[in-house]
Amino acid sequence: MPTNEQLKATQHVLDVPYLARLARLEITAEEIEIFGPQLGRILDHVEQINKLDISGIEPTAHAITVFDVIRGDEVTESLPKGIILANAPHNANGLFVVPKVLD
């Protein structure tokens, strides 16, 4: 378990507004102030993986080996359009409606 000392100090400074923009997430000044140090401390903890020698080690994406799975090329039933559109916040004429993207 980390000590309080370790929890306080952080070497990592994240550009939170930039990352939030990449993630398409509007963020408040208050959140920037809170997240910065919190994420910094998490990254300090994460840093310990650099202690390990990983040369020659293959990465694991899935723990249980998965092989390509190909299904038969057959047309199967899809969910009805009306049911899908019913969940949309705004739809018209069988389409999802979004703000204008072209002038």
């Binding site: 993986i49 650099n50 390990l52 990983i54 080690i57 293959e58 990465p59 694991t60 994406a61 723990a63």
Partner: peptide
């Protein structure tokens, strides 16, 4: 990528 390698370990 590094985390995925440690995951292997």
């Amino acid at each position: 990528l590094r985390a995925q390698k440690v995951r292997t370990l």
